[in-house]
Amino acid sequence: MTATFDQCIDVSNSLLRGELSAVETYTQALAKFRTEPERSLLRSIRADHQDSVGRLRAHIDDMGVQPDESSGVWGQFAKAVEGFAKVFGHTTTLMALEAGELSGIDDYLVALDDPEVMDEIKQEIREVLLPRLERHLDALRKVRAK
């Protein structure tokens, strides 16, 4: 494999780990929220992140390598949100979820600027993955403002 190809795999797996962490984070946050509209929103966002995991895994599979299976270091973020949810109220948990979405947006923007990331992955980021995170962020902010 070339350095360019390796870089694309590394970036793609990093994005995948972030999405896996998001799934874990929203699963933990759902334990805190028992009422609507928060519960439905968090379930919907988690489903989007699960779909993003599938999309990124498919791209990595297409490159002929095994996708990462765990969130790795990103899993620590999920644990932090779980801790926030137990100790603090809903507002703090929602703010932590917003921070996670912002981090994901930043990661996708960096990937878009990386010349080593394949065009097919960049297209997926531009058309699906990034707009999805921006919608999540807006929805979380609206729920928190109520």
Rank of each mutant, 00 (worst) to 15 (best):
80 A>N: 09
31 A>L: 15
126 R>N: 14
54 G>R: 05
127 E>W: 02
146 K>G: 08
116 E>Q: 09
143 V>C: 10
143 V>H: 13
94 L>S: 09
11 V>P: 07
58 A>H: 10
132 R>M: 07
4 T>K: 14
50 Q>K: 10
87 V>W: 10
17 R>D: 00
66 Q>Y: 14
52 S>Y: 04
44 S>L: 11
107 D>Y: 12
11 V>T: 02
141 R>T: 13
81 V>E: 00
47 A>Y: 07
26 Y>I: 04
25 T>R: 07
61 D>I: 06
120 E>W: 14
98 E>T: 13
10 D>A: 03
122 K>P: 05
29 A>D: 06
56 L>T: 06
97 L>F: 03
29 A>T: 13
43 R>Q: 11
129 L>G: 12
123 Q>Y: 10
111 A>C: 08
118 M>E: 14
118 M>R: 14
129 L>R: 11
3 A>S: 09
46 R>W: 04
101 E>M: 03
109 L>F: 03
17 R>H: 01
54 G>S: 12
132 R>N: 08
10 D>L: 13
45 I>D: 08
86 K>N: 15
49 H>K: 05
63 M>S: 02
9 I>K: 10
50 Q>I: 06
19 E>V: 01
54 G>H: 07
123 Q>T: 14
146 K>E: 03
81 V>Y: 00
73 V>S: 04
35 T>G: 11
99 A>L: 15
113 D>T: 12
68 D>L: 03
141 R>G: 09
17 R>K: 04
124 E>V: 11
135 R>S: 04
138 D>Y: 09
106 D>L: 13
106 D>C: 04
